[in-house]
Amino acid sequence: MPLNRALVGRSYDPGPPFDVSRQKIREFAAAIGDEAPVYADLELARALGHRDIPAPPTFGSVVSLQMGQGPRRDPRLGLDYSRVVHGEQRIEGSRPIYAGDTLVGEVTIASIRNAGGNELLEILCALATEAGEPVCRVTSVLVSRGTAPGSDRG
């Protein structure tokens, strides 16, 4: 079944704010094997001009995955996760994510388009602090294999 394109432009509840701790950043950096000392050394981070420990550039995607469950699980959209692969990702930062940030998100289905027999579902998650300071925009494109309208498998 093709995805329900009437949901393009719809916003979703992002769930609770995401509290970014120094411990979580260290844990994530260690998980990607990144031993740069800045993830554990507040003085070094400040010497580099940061207000606190910065997160690796892809950390915004961790937050967006948590906040972006609404569209992924919306039965009206009709996304079959067994057909889904990750197609594209973009993280555009107004500034790095820092330890101490409490992040809130605006989650939207930005577009659904055809690519051969597949459909590309674009989910946008705009992250800001609770005080309203923009932090980053995370764009995730999921490939829904074989569901394009008119496709044999659709």
Binding site: A36, L48, G49, H50, A55, P57, Q89, I91, G93, P96
Partner: peptide, 8 residues
């Protein structure tokens, strides 16, 4: 790590 502004 804070130097990366846009990564896609």
């Amino acid at each position: 790590p804070g130097a990366v502004e846009d990564f896609s």
